[in-house]
Design a protein around this nucleic acid. Sequence first.
RNA 1: GUGAGUGUAGCUCAAUUGGCAGAGCACUGGACUGUGGCUCCAGUGGUUGAGGGUUCAAGCCCCUUCACUCACCCCA
Length: 425
Amino acid sequence: MANKTVQSVRGFVDLLPEDAWKWQFLEATAREVFQLYGFEEIRTPLLEKTDLFSRSVGEATDIVGKEMYTFTDRSGDSLSLRPEGTAPVVRAYLEHGFAKSHPESSFYYLAPMFRHERPQHGRLRQFHQIGAELFGIPGPEADAEIISLQADLLSRMGLKDFSLAINSLGCRACQPEYHRRLVGFLEPLAPKLCPNCQKRVRGNPLRVLDCKEAECRALLRSQSVPRISDSLCPACSEHFSELQAILKTMGLEFTLDPFLVRGLDYYTRTAFEIYPGKSGSQSRTDAISAGGRYDELISDLGGPALPAVGFALGMERILLQLPEIPPPAKKPAVALLAMGVSARRLVQKLARELRENGFPARADLKGGSFKAQIHRADRAGAGLVLILGEDEIRDQTVMVKDLKKSEQEKIPAKDLVAYLRNKLS
RNA sequence: GUGAGUGUAGCUCAAUUGGCAGAGCACUGGACUGUGGCUCCAGUGGUUGAGGGUUCAAGCCCCUUCACUCACCCCA
């Protein structure tokens, strides 16, 4: 590449036709499933006031602290490209009065998200999530509905093996008590933990549980780490056990993971993650879908005290897990060739007529020898080729060649549409 | 943000110790004046990611930078 060539921004990639149809498949599948569950689409802007994310996701999180695309616009407002989908949907829910008119609403979105991370396999700076939010239902039935929705989504997309892990993070009544117990437990252990975790003990002890370092993990598994399940208040405890009962009734398999913690501050009670592959003691991979309950977020953002649950699925990540997606059946297109300028004009006009009649038609725009034009038509996947040359113009016919059968016949121009209708139906 | 690896034609990859930048596929044309796929022949296509340095000589060695990949981190 010459150095004058402009390249795309790091972590922002082009989706080329050879892959775009896979995305169309994912999107179509998602819309189908959401429709089955009665969720409705919502589209929010890419840009939000930075404040929305610092208040919801959390000032201290990595996402807000070091990964957001934040800038000051010409009016002096601090704006950010959305790094996640929940906060904008909550904002829209409040802004348009759903909290009052339809508090029990459910929305879905298919949308790009932006985080300034180091690009890596399955991790881009512009990435895409399919997500849903279910507002206004406090009971574990809502959690189960969201989990069930995710499972259906993944299987319909063709993912054979995946496993669901769930945990309860407690609520604002029981979290402080657990926090104290955990810090009390971790502090004496701190010297044995990884440097990162040594910092976390004071700053964000929950995330020590989630550390991927083998040593930390081993240390935490072997000891009698205080579990959040032992510190849950009666209400949270009941919510969590009811959820498990519902999931069992629904036939949704899950494992309990007391170390599952989420990276966004707004989660309360139920948190869940879905990993590719069968459950078991395999190496921990990135979650392809995750979410949880966030009962305080709506009020934290200035709304009434209403509960909510949601999830988000990473589209790039699920594509990496899907072995093969059946390519869409191509409609046999009709290709039109012409020899000479005047024939080419006629052919382009004819192509328009064919399209009006619903036939996908490809007029050869470049010209050249018939050989070259037929070659191109074949490459483009045309089943039938219509040839218009001097002879055909003279006797008002069109030569119709069937590329597969290698047969051709002359058809009167006026009968062409009827002929094609018969031939292609 | 940290560490490591890799960048050669549109794509997949060669190029001995530092010694003339190549092949296959794709594309264009011809063999075959108005007929595709198969075959054969020919052609187009490169500032070897970019910039600098060492050297008689750099795709190869050194420095810088950009991008990608992998791990960390983070998370979907």
